[in-house]
Amino acid sequence: MAELTTQGAGRVAVLKPRVFGWVQDYGVYAAVLALLLFNVLFTPHFLDASNFRTQLVQVTPIVIVSLGMALVIGTQGIDLSVGSAMSLAAALVVLYLGYGWLPALIVAVLGGAVVGAVGGALVAYVDVQPIVATLALLVGIRGLANVLVPQLVEFRNPDLIALGSSSVAGIPVIVLIAAALTLVVMFVVRRTTFGRQVVAIGGNRSASELSGLPVKRVLLIVYVISGLLAALAGVLATARLQASDPTSLGLFIELSAITAVVVGGTPLTGGRIRVLSTVMGALLMQLLAATLIKHNLPQSWTQMVQAVIILAAVYATRERATR
């Protein structure tokens, strides 16, 4: 039977040659470029610096969270706890702001790392399914964040506010941070032993175990990284809002992050991680929403178009898997 499917796949590969492979590899880049071009031509004031910056700043938390999500999905896992890790970070950062913005930031990010460590330990050592382990954290950690900071708290720490609103050479600092993190994660995935092990474990866990890879440790670290990045996104979002809002910060961001990863062409079956494409996936969804709103189409239209794009991306990824 296995041979039958292989033959079928071979035929598909012949019928849909290069073009389809190209779409799979670069489709998301092309889509982003096409949307940009469309906007330059048809959307008034699109190229205004302020508008462009707003778009980038808005998408930054999603980009940072989806970097971690891409790693987790690469191991055949999923991390639903990222939004709650963000809210915990938002709570921790205002609670410790009295010690200065940097200590507060460190505590908040460590909080996210602990959330990731709990999820990762459940997945790696207790063999809980990723979706269940992180679902529990999704519920529990937001509760914890709400206990710590029950309502919206505004703050006046100038350094933290500056982190969220200042720019270097016209580019917002938080966008620069997201770009730097993207490069770091790309480097980790492509060039480090750890990154190659992450991909291998997602591709075939038993083979990785028999090859002597520290499978459990790698899985744990992947979730820690995801929690850490989510917490950092939470701090940056809080800095930009100039207020800590654990009740609603990061709500449903896990879905946006998964969408970015999927649209970027990383298969949910693991074994392959496309970092830059994931960022492009996040940009594509953001740009799409902005474009439709600018052209006076209601929000509901955006959602339907996004659904179509998700399905198209999944279709392309699946074809690749059988190739």
Binding site: R196, V199, A200, G203, A207, L210, L213, R272
Partner: peptide
């Protein structure tokens, strides 16, 4: 089931254990 990592290249499969 226990040997190859199908999503990786020949090169990466060879290097896996010795990484």
């Amino acid at each position: 089931a226990e040997g190859i990592i199908p999503t990786l290249s020949v090169r990466e499969n060879i290097a896996l254990a010795a990484l």
